[in-house]
Write a protein that binds this DNA or RNA. Structure first.
Lengths: 145, 145
DNA sequence: CTAGGTGCAAAAGGTTTGCGGTTAA
DNA sequence: TTAACCGCAAACCTTTTGCACCTAG
């Protein structure tokens, strides 16, 4: 019986990680917009509210939050990791033209069992789509300009 | 009517990219072992046969081959891109402990249609599993030593 | 009290770029 | 012949690390 609206503090406490102001700001920076910010973007957002915050700490916080399962690291963009607070299983689309990232609902027919060698422990499945977003698709192709 | 055993040369010619010795060696380095080498590993393998080869060229070749659809870039490992010449749709498992990467067959129930906004062009779907491989799972957990 | 977290600055590591020379087609 | 490609080395950018100080529990 998970409470309906658990605060970030509740979540961190429950997951057993130490609750620091930095982690709160990082987590809030991620929650305040449902885009998929890079570590640097999270840093800039959080630093606006906590000027003493350092980028290395943001990396540490993002790692800690990912490790404890409160957020997800998204690897659809090779240039830099992005982070997502949406814990409901879903995929991500990445536009090769403009770099936009958005959530893609998983088709219910997507099986959750995978044919892996016996003894393999699968802790996480990541589904990344790549292509051109609708907005870029109707512009003249920038890659051939 | 695709020929049953197309050579790398055939494939490159057909895909319209210029056929250079460097690209041949890079492609062969990828074909010779069905592991999932990084650019550096491809470089080392190919350089053994073509000592003048440079790492930057390997990056260029891998990009060109990926772009032309002859190989796949695999992003299951954030540390570095890996490359895969297996064009049959499949996923990848990445072991967090030892870094091994292996192919995962796709469950036939996996739908190929994705709920993306109208007009979105999906050119590629990547499925990455993360966890602990069978071999690492039966060792004492190294992350808690 | 103290294990764990933070800030800083420097380093590491993968990847890209600029440029002069080379080559496949 | 020439647009495309190569080799080299430097630059770039994200991420990690070492260390002194600080703080949540």
């Amino acid at each position: 019986m998970k409470p309906q609206s658990e605060t970030s503090d509740d979540a961190m406490t429950r997951s057993g990680i130490r609750l620091t102001p930095q982690r709160r700001y990082v987590y809030e920076a991620l929650m305040e917009k449902r885009d998929h910010p890079t570590a640097l973007e999270v840093f800039l957002r959080a630093k606006a509210r906590m000027p003493s915050l350092s980028l290395a700490t943001v990396y540490n916080c993002l790692d800690a939050l990912t490790e404890s399962g409160l957020i997800r690291q998204v690897n659809c963009d090779r240039a830099s990791s992005r982070y997502c607070p949406n814990l409901i299983p879903h995929g991500h689309f990445f536009c090769k033209e403009c770099g936009v990232v958005f959530d893609v609902p998983l088709n219910p027919s997507l099986a959750t069992e995978w044919e892996v060698p016996q003894g393999t422990l699968v802790s996480h499945v990541e589904i990344n789509l790549r292509g051109t977003c609708a907005s870029c698709a109707q512009k003249p192709n920038t890659s051939t300009l």
